[in-house]
Design a protein around this nucleic acid. Structure first.
Lengths: 197, 197
DNA sequence: TAATCTACCAAACACTTGTTAGGGAAGGAG
DNA sequence: CTCCTTCCCTAACAAGTGTTTGGTAGATTA
């Protein structure tokens, strides 16, 4: 039976685990430290979870699920290239606002985790993400909205990295809202930082 | 006595250690794995180094030394704001070309390492780096070279992150030289990716 | 009231970790 | 030939790791 409090407690424990993982790094974090932060003993965590790895798995997969729910609606909206980019970036910063720790973990550990079969979905997600971006950028170049003299793949990498790495310094409740950060970032990438003419 | 071969061997071992650290993450990497990659046994590493941590220390500090040698000459050259930014970015990509693994390690581990007294110089370097960038950007805004409606601190963070995170995908000897990557990146950041007008 | 279930603790387990101690082959120095 | 240094190996250690087992106070159910 999956009671309601059961679900809530799991989510609560996963949230603190995600925070500690993000701060110290997954491998550098001991199960006892997570338990400490949650206010119980190490062994007690195994009443709720199979293993340390399954906590990480649940943190990352539930984050990616919600992320793609947002992305898919954007991609299905039939917007123009520039508007699609704007919507994707804004959606990304919103996810950072909501799932900060999960994003930070993803950004640090995704590379060597995706080698493990259990985390193969990380690689899948990355491929899907890259395809969506590249298609949008190429469409923009074809329509004359984006410059043709830039390497699309390089642009994609730069934009992707900058957006996600923002999770390492962004703190919810700061002076800038996710939408404001997205607006400034988009303005920089789209129009450049130099004065026109 | 510090013989020549002694120095060469140390550098050789540090290079392979840096590669493994960058691939697997410092904490996830066991001393035995480093030894394996270097073709000797775990204990034998302790003939050359005091500890695993001192390997990391030597990798990071020697990288930062060389990095700042480059930066300082750029900053002392008395260039204009735009030219200073261009030179800093280009120099950064050159360092990524030369010290790829060290940069990757730095980018992943710097945050929680700088809390340790032994690695306090990481925090110092970051402060110095931030000051140099912010001063240059503000000077550019004051001179009318850069837009005044962007948050300088945000611009700094975005640019800094994008440049350094490139170490995670850049591979020496690829299709793009460091200078070419720097040129494309600068073109994007300075002029934007949309077509003029 | 009696039985069951929930959520935790106490204590240990097997294993991996970084590190150390002692020894030995190879080769140059005297 | 002998001595000594260099560089590595073998073998172990203590501490820390993720995980398991058995138990138990307190609420929930019958």
């Amino acid at each position: 039976m999956t009671t309601n409090s059961n679900v809530e407690r799991r989510a609560e424990l996963l949230a603190t685990a995600a925070q500690v993982f993000a701060d110290q790094g997954y491998n550098a974090t001991t199960v006892r430290r997570v338990a400490d932060a949650a206010g119980l003993l190490a062994g007690s965590l195994y009443y709720h979870f199979d293993s340390k790895e399954s906590m990480l798995d649940e943190i990352l997969s539930s984050f990616l699920d919600e992320l793609w729910a947002g992305y898919d609606t954007v991609l299905a909206a039939g917007l123009g290239p520039r508007e699609t980019i704007e919507a994707l970036v804004t959606e990304s910063f919103r996810q950072i606002d909501r799932h900060g720790p999960a994003v930070a973990i993803y950004q640090k550990e995704a590379r060597h985790l995706s080698a493990q079969p259990r985390f193969a979905y990380l690689a899948d997600s990355q491929v899907k993400f890259e395809n969506a971006w590249l298609r949008t950028l190429e469409r923009g170049v074809a329509e004359g909205v984006f410059r043709a003299d830039l390497d699309v793949r390089l642009v994609y990498r730069f934009v992707r990295d900058t957006v996600w790495v923002a999770a390492s310094w962004y703190r919810p409740g700061g002076t800038h809202s996710p939408e404001e950060i997205a607006r400034q970032y988009l303005s920089m990438v789209l129009e450049g930082i130099t004065t026109p003419n």
